[in-house]
């Protein structure tokens, strides 16, 4: 059964590019436009990984990770932050919230795929 990755980004072009990278490798994709939308769409649906942007309207990526850690269903789902933010302080904030990895945009497809495989393993 194909593994599912939830992609959270307010940029539709980024969502499309992540989808292109992962669906080619056989992953199913669930898209959300921000943290709030992700929480609504995830609901009781279990996914294998969440890839999230940091700066988004309504609910940002760090808040999303914090909310997921409070959710019994998604507490242990790994989260990969994919963002333009490259500051160490921001990365530490993500790590403290519970994110498992951090990739600074623009991402390289091979690199993203390798990170996804490592996190889902």
């Amino acid at each position: 059964m194909a593994k599912t990755v939830c992609v959270v980004d307010d940029s539709s072009s980024m969502r499309q590019l992540v989808r292109m990278t992962l669906s080619g490798a056989g992953y199913d994709i669930l898209e959300a436009v921000d943290g709030q939308d992700a929480l609504e769409k995830l609901g009781a649906r279990r996914v294998n990984l969440i890839i999230s942007d940091v700066n988004m309207p309504r609910m940002d990526g760090i808040s999303l990770v914090k909310a997921l850690k409070q959710n019994a269903m998604h507490r242990f789902t790994p989260v990969l932050m994919l963002t333009t933010e490259s500051e160490d302080a921001k990365k530490r904030e993500g790590q403290a919230a519970g994110a498992k990895a951090w990739i600074v945009k623009p991402f390289k497809p091979d690199q993203l795929l390798a990170a996804v495989q490592k996190l889902i393993m």
């Binding site: 072009s13 980024m14 333009t84 945009k105 623009p106 991402f107 390289k108 497809p109």
Partner: peptide, 12 residues
């Protein structure tokens, strides 16, 4: 892959 990296300019 190179083009996919370049196309991410829109987000930035």
């Amino acid at each position: 892959h190179r083009i996919m990296v370049d196309l991410q300019f829109q987000d930035r």
